[in-house]
Amino acid sequence: MTAHADIAHGETAHEHAHPGIGTYVKVGVILFVLTAAEVAVYEFGYNHAGAGFGALLHPVVIPVLLVLSALKFALVAMFYMHLKQDSRLFSSLFVFPLIIAAVVIVALIALFAYHYAFQKLIH
């Protein structure tokens, strides 16, 4: 799938061997499929949670959605934003803040969940 080339890489910053249209379209199709999968997970996991596949899916809807979303995120970042081909520096400019952002989100959710659990504990 990687149409990226080993051709004339990196003399100047302006000429990155960006992948071709074929790759872009393939990624686009995958993104579309993943989005459909997300909606399907929602539909089955919640609205048909009574039996069969839906029942199986119901307890893991949130983690599955998070994984699918992360996959889409990574695909866009790597192929459309060219982080796969561009300088590693750009990747770190994106990934380091993402780590801090994730820490902030997770910590806040945990702290508030803990706050409320602790409140219940008191009473």
Binding site: I100, V103, V104, A107, L111, Y114, F118
Partner: peptide
């Protein structure tokens, strides 16, 4: 520096683990 902010909030009673 990004992992210590709640030390400004010890008196809010966040609970022993936090």
């Amino acid at each position: 520096g990004f992992g210590v902010w709640s030390h400004h909030m010890f008196s809010t009673g966040m609970g022993p683990i936090a």
